[in-house]
Design a protein around this nucleic acid. Structure first.
Lengths: 297, 297
DNA sequence: ACTATTGATACCTTTTTGATATCATGCGTT
DNA sequence: AACGCATGATATCAAAAAGGTATCAATAGT
């Protein structure tokens, strides 16, 4: 079966015009070459596709069948080329994106929504992981992007802050301090804390411990949970209080009270981070999108 | 986009081997030619498909996407060629087949069933028409085959008898003659007849009238119907009797009695007829099948 | 630094494709 | 019946595409 796309184009033209000369004109070539081309094609597939009398041309049954095949083949080819071109400029692709509790409670949903609207050809696959696991995923190329708890700066990586949340305290209703409009960290020195498990929330623990140490105490953890929902649940049971970030305003359950922390200027930064990779145009597109969002706002 | 199937084959080989020399071996060609071929392809679609370091080859995202396209394209092409070949030898196709009441009550169902089992690639589309309409359909190529009431012999046409049915009389239960094991035509001379409408049943009428005339009478038609079912229904209402063929044994309703006609050696022949047509391999296949069936039995 | 491996390049040959001129056939017209 | 016109086929030559051989350049492993 030695024939090319050229032959297929020729055949479809003749099959559609049912006229060699007109078909040849349409193909910008001379009629004899076309005759030979068709004959070659027929020879290669071993089937007569056209019935020629000296006055007219008509398709054989096999020709009809083959014509259909030709059409889908040509469409298929155009499609493959178009898709490949789109893939090369990052108009289609797939991104695996890690996120933390803070990211999904904050800026990430809006970012992904905007991005998907602007680049509908790029599918995103968000996966929940704590910061450390995300960094491993990025290193091993299992993740394209991480939305992690900052700060973060590592050679070969890029990052942009997408969230810059002030810390807040979360009380159950009826807690004595809940009556105040705001509290200071040192007021919490003797409170029992409900916190994320140290393994999974390592970054947050580090930040919290640092701030508390600055305020002159070490937080007493009385309960731990595996995610924000769990923490809020335990607080609702009045087992303790916690420090979280202002993104909690969006998600905290009934029966809980959120209060700003007076005198703590530190914030918890959530960053989008990624490794450059020439092989993934979609990744560059998303990176550019993130930088543009950060620069624009 | 000037590239051929050749290029696609080359690319898939390299993409699968991720190695130019091995791919070239697989394609039975030299490595430099392959390198150039791929480069040409990339140039034509304007996208880099392969990432080459001097030590290894890998697919770009665009390459991955295009590879998928190549696979379906190749499959598509193989399929088109195979289908065309099958169509040319009549292994796939479509046949429009006319039939009369006598044919569908007799041999046709078994014939079609056997044929479809043997040539599953050929679809059949049976259409009910009286003999005259079928002959028109054959002439205008709207029908591939007719199953008509014979005899029939016309230049350019072929035919084979598929059914050779003796005539029978159909009485309602309680009719005086129904008590006899058999009757002669002349015994029916004064009976009221229920018959198919002359327009639609022209052939049958001609035969019946001829036989009755030979027996010395003209049948008195008191009711007409448009098909066998209708005739049988009217007889069940005791509006008259009819002459039909022995295929009625298969279908006649309760309350009716079928009796052979003594002394009438004539039969009603149902024939499959068709025009030769070089352009329809499926038609020749079915014709051969019919002739084989007729010859074998 | 040396070797082996890998893809790229240069140069030539073969194959494929196309253009021009011309032929053969059959239909419609005179 | 003869002629002309339209149509596809054939012959021949030229150009383009594709392939082969020899060789180069880069690099990983020793």
């Amino acid at each position: 079966m030695r024939f090319g796309i050229r032959h297929i184009r020729h055949f479809t033209a003749v099959a559609e015009e049912l006229h060699f000369r007109r078909a040849a004109e349409r193909l910008n070539m001379a009629q004899p070459a076309l005759s030979r081309s068709i004959k070659h094609l027929e020879g290669q597939i071993g089937v007569q596709l056209l019935e020629r009398t000296n006055r007219s041309v008509s398709l054989t049954k096999a020709g009809e069948v083959f014509l259909e095949g030709c059409h889908s083949m040509l469409a298929n080819m155009e499609g493959a080329v178009t898709q490949a071109r789109k893939a090369s400029i990052g108009e289609i692709g797939h991104l695996v994106i890690g996120y933390t509790d803070f990211a999904i409670s904050g800026a990430l949903p809006q970012i992904l929504q905007d991005f998907r609207q602007r680049y509908p050809g790029i599918t995103v696959e968000p996966i929940h992981h704590v910061t450390m696991r995300q960094l491993e995923g990025l290193e091993s190329e299992k993740l394209d992007f991480g939305f992690i708890t900052g700060p973060f700066d590592r050679p070969g990586y890029h990052g942009v802050v997408v969230q810059d949340d002030a810390y807040v305290v979360i009380f159950y209703e009826g807690h004595p301090l809940a009556k105040k409009k705001s509290v200071t960290l040192s007021e919490l020195a003797d409170e029992p804390f409900v916190l994320g498990s140290p393994n999974d929330w390592q970054h947050f623990h580090d930040h919290l411990n640092r701030h508390c140490r600055a305020a002159g105490f070490v937080p007493k953890m009385v309960q731990q949970a595996y995610n924000s929902e769990g923490i809020f649940g335990l607080i609702a049971c009045e087992m303790g209080i916690t420090v979280h970030t202002e993104c909690a305003y969006n998600y905290v359950r009934k029966g809980l009270v959120v209060r700003p922390i007076r005198g703590l200027d530190e914030t918890l930064k959530t960053m989008a981070v990624w490794k450059d990779n020439e092989r993934s145009p979609a990744r560059r597109v998303f990176a550019d999108f993130l930088l543009e969002q950060a620069g624009g706002s």
